[in-house]
């Protein structure tokens, strides 16, 4: 490393011959060397230096104030749980901390820029690779080591050590992999808790739905009717993930066709709410066009036409839940879906 005392000094690194195919260019300009160093105002004017010193001290002082401010804000503003109260605490603390940090940051940078040495230095680089001798020595060391271990001469040992090392990860992997996937019963994708006679209920209230409740143009977000206490468990959330249904009543004349024969009741149709693309809840029902739009990736399904895809990245129609009414006039399922709901997977049709 050398200080650039002679910035105008010529450089020699111009013409180079490298044996890797590029044409050596001899007709090149000469490197003019590192540009001249210009002293800063603070280097030559003690007044300017003094002024900068004061600015730096002031910035550090501001930082101290910020820190004190943050502690004061912490103790003085107690978030009361209301939105404005928590916001007051958050904003005051955040701004005070920012002042404290900015003070230090600006002071340090200003110090470095104005008062610390700004002289450039030039340091030599060395090749990134080690020398031939070192490489040779290392090679020899490895050779010697291998020779010493005798692994080349003792093939049985070679096989043994490779086998042992290759097998040992199984001690961890087997228990891990076999436990981590739960019961591995991937067949559960096929079924939901809907079955013949399950009543339809409003989500989230759980009230039952009468066919007469639904006016034309209505949409209802529906869950299967299970006792309220059963709805407070993980099993329920997992089941609900597959069982949610969108119930729509439209003018029977608007139906272009029914996807599943005899599955609707008086213009009321129920379709799985889980997108056949990647499983978002499809729920944007446009009453006039009967289009059902997924807000995640904009697959659009035509509810009037068997929920077939009219736009977007989904391929298959939404599975339909066959419904009818029971003796008391409540909407009930006639059966489970007749295909797995949600996104496609490899063995879906099996």
């Amino acid at each position: 490393m050398s200080e650039n005392q002679n910035p105008q000094g010529p450089s020699r690194d111009v013409a180079r011959h490298d044996g890797d195919g590029t044409v050596a260019q001899t007709d090149r300009f000469v490197d003019p060397g590192v540009p001249e160093h210009h002293p800063r105002l603070a280097d030559v004017d003690p007044k300017a230096a003094k002024r900068n010193e004061r600015i730096i001290a002031l910035l550090f002082a501001i930082s101290c104030l910020g820190t004190i401010g943050s502690v004061v804000a912490y103790f003085a503003v107690r978030p009361d749980g209301t939105t404005p109260g928590v916001r007051m605490s958050t904003v005051l603390l955040g701004v005070a901390i920012a002042v404290s940090l900015f003070g230090i940051g600006f002071a340090a940078v200003h110090w470095a820029k104005t008062l610390m040495s700004a002289k450039e230095y030039t340091e030599e680089r060395h090749s990134s690779s080690s020398s031939e001798e070192v490489r040779g020595a290392v090679q020899q060391q490895f050779k010697d080591g291998l020779e010493d271990s005798g692994i080349a001469r003792r093939p049985v040992l070679k096989g043994a050590v490779v086998s042992a090392l290759a097998l040992f990860p199984l001690t961890i992997a087997v228990p891990l992999v076999s436990s981590v996937g739960g019961d591995w019963n991937v067949g559960s994708f096929r079924h939901t808790i809907w079955k013949k006679g399950t009543r339809l209920a409003y989500d989230p209230s759980g009230r039952l739905i009468k066919a007469s409740d639904l006016t034309v143009g209505s949409v209802a977000h529906v869950i299967p009717d299970v006792p309220a206490e059963e709805r407070e468990s993980h099993e329920w959330i997992t089941e609900k993930s597959k069982a949610v249904v969108l119930l729509v009543r439209m003018d029977p004349r608007d139906h272009k066709r029914d996807h599943r024969e005899g599955a609707s009741y008086d213009g009321i149709v129920a379709y799985s709410k889980i997108c056949t693309h990647v499983g978002c809840p499809v729920a944007l029902y446009e009453q006039q066009t009967h289009h059902l739009l997924c807000p995640c990736h904009q697959s659009t399904f035509d509810v009037a036409d068997g929920a077939k895809v009219v736009f977007g990245p989904a391929k298959r129609p939404l599975p339909q839940l066959p419904i009818t009414v029971d003796d008391e006039g409540y909407l009930v399922a006639e059966d489970d879906f007749n295909e797995p709901i949600g996104p496609s997977y490899w063995e879906r049709l099996k």
């Binding site: 006016t215 949409v219 006039q288």
Partner: peptide, 27 residues
């Protein structure tokens, strides 16, 4: 249910529940 919006009649979302939704929006 104006235009594209579906109908949420009083059987689906009761009058009290509708008021709860207004309360949420006021919040």
């Amino acid at each position: 249910g104006p235009q594209s919006m579906p109908v949420f009649n009083d059987a689906n979302i009761t009058p009290d529940e509708k008021r709860d939704i207004i309360a949420f929006l006021d919040e």
